[in-house]
Amino acid sequence: MIKKRHFGLDLFRAIAFFLVLITHSLFIVEKFNPKFRNFAFIGNLALEMFYALSGYLIGNIFFKNFIESDFSYKKVIEFLKNRWFKTLPTYYLIVCISLIVSYLQYGNFQDFSIKFLFFTQNLHEANFFFFPTSYTLAIEEWFYLSFPLLFWLFVTIFKWDKLNTFIFLSVFFILFSTIFRFYKYYSFPNLHWDTGFRKSILTRIDATAYGLLLSYFHKFKRDFIIKNTKKLFLIGVFGIICCILIKMKVHSFILYTLYFNLMHISITMILPTFFYLDVHQLRFKNIIHQISLISYCIYLVHLQLVYIPMGNLWQAKTLLEAIFQCFCMYFLAFMLGYLLYILVEKPMMKWRDKIKFV
């Protein structure tokens, strides 16, 4: 399985993954030095990296299974099956465990609701403390459900060309979220940027669409991308710096609307650099592959089941102790994530491969 993986993309995912782990642990050390909170932007950056990579990989799947081969509703079912067998069993298990941990810690289930079972907890606003990282999963799950269903509708019912439908829907999702962010900004002026815009499904459902367009350009304009990889990388870095400055200095409609477009485009322009990494002599590449394999499971457990409980139970007295506590949290998150992968995700993936619809 490892031999079939692309090291550059796994490295991209691993970098994003470590940035998330570090960012979410800042609440431990910022008590001793508030300046640590200034590095919170790297968590936002990391999540945009996940969105871009996920979109690119899904785009490749679409080209292989939907566009370049015979297409039917069975292909849509197969796509959703592959996605849901990987994500849903572990997600629902962690929801159940989180309910138990929450009750043991607080004597209640915090603000859990049935919305968490249907990924609608952040449809309008992500203002909840139960399973706080689940908002990213909700955004992606709704995109991965709606995009193939709309694709099937246009291709099968309206007889659209498959490639044109792919491009149209990718652009449609981008325009939809952009326009909706403008609408939401003027209709709900007191809505918080983080919970009401960055973490809301309808304002961020376009996040993965940029990766889809990248997969299109990489397939049909590959020579251009190869020739201009370094230029694209530098432009992407410049765009990210601009986004960081906007986040720090600009508190207007730009931050609530076009900021997200610029961030998506910038991250997408950086990604091609990782397509062509020469890694044949790297000794640690298998470690990166393994981290990439279990990253989803670690993401599920790290904040809800490790960071928050440990932060409540262990009150560090010094900055040095707080840093040591962070490393303990990283280690425990890795161990729990690995166990979740071995005991749940990996068996479910094997079972998934035995179920065929096409």
Rank of each mutant, 00 (worst) to 15 (best):
I179Q: 07
K74E: 14
F327H: 12
F334M: 11
E140M: 08
K86Y: 13
A52I: 01
S25P: 09
C297K: 03
F233A: 03
L339D: 10
F166E: 00
A126V: 02
K221C: 14
N122C: 06
F166S: 05
Y299H: 09
T133S: 13
D223Y: 15
P347A: 03
F253R: 09
L45A: 00
F327V: 08
H264W: 06
F143P: 00
F12P: 03
E141I: 08
C328P: 13
G236H: 03
F331P: 10
V306K: 00
F118S: 11
K354G: 13
Y338W: 15
I294R: 04
Q281H: 15
T178Y: 11
Q121I: 01
R13I: 07
T203P: 05
Y183Q: 11
K115T: 07
Y56S: 04
F253A: 11
E30I: 06
T229F: 09
L153D: 03
Y296H: 06
P309K: 05
F151A: 01
Y92M: 11
L339S: 11
R83P: 10
M349S: 10
I254L: 13
D206I: 01
W314C: 07
N33Q: 14
K3T: 14
T195K: 04
F116M: 05
P132F: 06
T203S: 02
R222N: 14
D353M: 11
Y183G: 08
I342K: 13
F36V: 00
D206Y: 01
F17S: 05
K74H: 14
T229A: 08
I291V: 06
K75R: 11
S102N: 04
F17K: 06
D161M: 07
K227T: 10
R283Y: 15
M248K: 14
I114S: 12
I100P: 09
L255H: 07
H192A: 10
Y299S: 02
F27A: 07
F112Q: 03
F217P: 00
L340A: 04
H264T: 01
P272K: 00
F238H: 10
E321M: 11
L258W: 14
Y341K: 02
T87C: 12
L117D: 10
I225Q: 05
F128A: 01
K221T: 11
G236E: 05
R5C: 12
F143D: 03
